[in-house]
Design a protein around this nucleic acid. Structure first.
Lengths: 336, 336
DNA sequence: CTGAAAGCGCTTACAG
DNA sequence: CTGAAAGCGCTTACAG
């Protein structure tokens, strides 16, 4: 380990008290200029770095924001971290990242482990079930912002992608193109975002007034489940004339199923996804989808945490999505 | 913030000293069973969580590993984090992540900021230039493992992808297919991995003995630079019969350039990359590449940090790559 | 098995 | 402007 140099060593060398070293290094005003310069130069020379735990124990601040996510890998989280990290950097903050790896029951443990390590918390908890348990644990302490999470906890700041509005807009687009038998491949039952997208689909269909019945097949956000759903839909009679998958990964799985079966997209069946992952523009045909600006979600959540007044009644904020029309959907000439 | 409950509160309620609470909660043996049960249940009831900074200040341990990376976003880092995180999880460790965002000069600051916050460090520093500066700062303290970094610092544990061997193997594959005029799109000059891949290309070419001259065009690992290089190569006469890009992103850029120009791959020119990013299998034609198991790199680096004896002379370890042959290269019938 | 006390390395009122 | 001292919340020899 090598004995690290402490504030005492610096004080000794500079012939001042540790208090003065602390003040000089932290830029307090009440330090003689000559003294400050001497202290700073000695600290430099000795390669002194304040011991973080000691500093945060006495100052009650950690300069760190905790990020608790359901998972760490994958495009989504990587983009999210990018947005969060950008703001952290601007503000000179560190990030303590923790994932509960898809085990909602470990989430509370992850949250508790943050005590004494962070000044605030960004939490993403898309599991519908664990919502209130979560609120309870957040309430007791740290300033927090919830992302894409279903919670009824009052006083909790929250920011979500407008999944309901986005799904509705996509269905409207499909209806506008002339599609009528629009099937929906749903996401996991216990996922709040999946739930909202499904709700948007249903609502838009009801609004369209073509008395089209909801046509929902199960999925779990994975490519494989989309592939399976695609095959299932092809076996129906009549087939849907458009398929809206609750996320792009399932849309891609479905697309492969259609390609395998020789179905023409969008001639025979149109296809749309949600998220706009990078792959969406590369597949053939390129996928119509609803873009979610994920880094922006992270950045805005971070700013909400840092800048928003803690008091007052926080209004849950929404992040708009953007319809990206590509080749997998097309206005029908025989539109009724 | 809400006044957090401390060890004192638990001690008071349990009618024991804080020392006993500490021992009971930390599972030390010398605590009466009845007392331990009482303490544990009271701590539970009070929702007591030890204050991390205090604990690590007195115990000199943080249960945290620091990860200092050149960047945070993108597939590569996301996969790397996945590997690191898996091991951290197994061992009950936290991760403090820090990026210096492509500014090598900020790397030292990032490293220093880790003092008192972590028990060990995983560092990735692909900038050739900053290598020794780095070693100096690492030496003074924390156990560390370097990933994909060029360093001559003795006593420093290190783990790298076998970029040299991988590039050599790819060139051998191309030569074996019958290609002779093999151009190479290089990565950034100051990047250690790019440097090693280039070296592998040169060495393999020399070994092939067809007295083929190295044919290197500049690139910077970006898709755009690959696209540019592709156009440049098409303007040459004679054209190369195969192009090996130092990474997949550039290979994809090159592929788009070839497709735009109506060049048949691999009929007219073969194409190969390095990394095996997910996109590689989806493009048309699917890209021959050298797979790097990135999560494994992270996981092994982590294990090296945690398990390897700190003393002794550490031997830099290498991570093997795997040749993935897809449609963008093919054995030539008119092979000489 | 348990407690009193020292100490981890800082910061911050409190005096001067 | 500067220093002595208390204190942050823990852990850990040291006694008993």
């Amino acid at each position: 380990m090598g004995d690290a140099v402490t504030i005492k060593d610096v004080a000794k060398r500079a012939n001042v008290s540790v208090a003065t070293v602390s003040r000089a290094l932290n830029g307090h005003v009440n330090v003689a200029d000559a003294v400050r310069r001497r202290v700073v130069s000695i600290a430099d020379e000795l390669r002194y770095t304040p011991h973080h735990a000691a500093r945060s124990l006495s100052s009650r601040r950690t300069q760190t924001v905790g990020v608790v996510l359901p998972d760490l890998h994958g495009e989504f989280f990587s983009e999210l971290m990018r947005g969060i990290d950008g703001v952290a950097r601007e503000r000179g903050l560190h990030l303590l990242v923790s994932s509960y790896h898809g085990h909602p029951e470990e989430q509370v443990a992850a949250l508790r482990a943050m005590r004494g390590r962070v000044d605030g918390l960004l939490v993403m908890s898309p599991y519908v079930a664990s919502a209130d348990q979560l609120g309870e644990h957040l309430a007791s302490g740290l300033p927090s912002v919830l992302m894409n999470s279903h919670t009824s906890t009052p006083g909790c700041r929250a920011l979500s992608v407008d999944n309901h509005g986005g799904a509705r807009a996509m269905v409207r687009h499909l209806v506008g193109c002339g599609y009528r038998r629009i099937a929906f491949i749903a996401g996991p039952q216990d996922n709040f975002e999946a739930h909202e997208r499904l709700r948007g689909y249903r609502d838009a269909l009801a609004e369209a007034g073509h008395d089209a019945q909801p046509w929902v097949v199960d999925g779990d956000f994975s490519e494989a489940s989309g592939h399976h759903a695609g095959h299932l839909l092809l076996s129906q009679s009549p087939r849907p004339d458009a398929v809206f998958a609750a996320n792009d990964m399932m849309a891609l799985g479905c697309l492969f199923a259609f390609n395998q079966a020789g179905v023409d997209i969008p001639g025979d069946i149109a296809l749309a996804g949600f998220d706009d992952i990078p792959l969406a523009r590369y597949v053939h045909p390129a996928l119509t989808t609803m873009r979610v600006n994920i880094p922006d979600l992270g950045a805005r959540a971070m700013r909400l945490l840092l800048d928003a007044p803690e008091s007052g009644t926080p209004v849950p904020e929404q992040l708009a999505t953007e319809l990206i029309v590509r080749d997998s959907t097309r206005a029908r000439s025989d539109s009724s």
